[in-house]
């Protein structure tokens, strides 16, 4: 039996992580970077709930997950606000072009 509830959630975690990391690898658009970061964090939240279930501290896992949801909303808001400002200042959302860190 491969499709136990546990395995389904695990596949979900790994899948979301994979999508997020792949997105970070290829994307150059700042808005998309914020979006894939959100996907990564969703994977983490899912993993936290799962860890709570597996370790028996169900409440602990879920309350940590709730905290992460709050924190990650702030990340999204600040990230998007930054993106808006960057678009206004530099006229582009292309990350390598904004970056001043050039060897």
């Amino acid at each position: 039996m491969i499709f136990t509830p546990l395995n389904i959630i695990l596949f979900g975690v790994v899948g979301l992580l994979g999508v997020g990391l792949y997105g970070l690898l290829i994307t150059r658009n700042l808005i998309k970077v914020v979006m894939v970061l959100q996907i990564l964090i969703k994977a983490v939240i899912l993993a936290l709930v799962l860890a709570g279930k597996l370790s028996g501290h169900l409440g602990l896992g879920q309350s940590t997950a709730a905290t992460v949801i709050v924190a990650d909303t702030i990340v999204a808001v600040v990230g998007l606000a930054l993106a808006v400002q960057v678009r206004r200042r530099f006229g582009t959302l292309d990350v390598p072009r904004i970056s001043t860190l050039r060897g």
């Binding site: 970070l24 690898l25 990350v95 390598p96 970056s99 860190l101 060897g103």
Partner: peptide, 8 residues
Amino acid sequence: TGELNWNI
């Protein structure tokens, strides 16, 4: 390189 994608 200082580029996001490479660091990832």
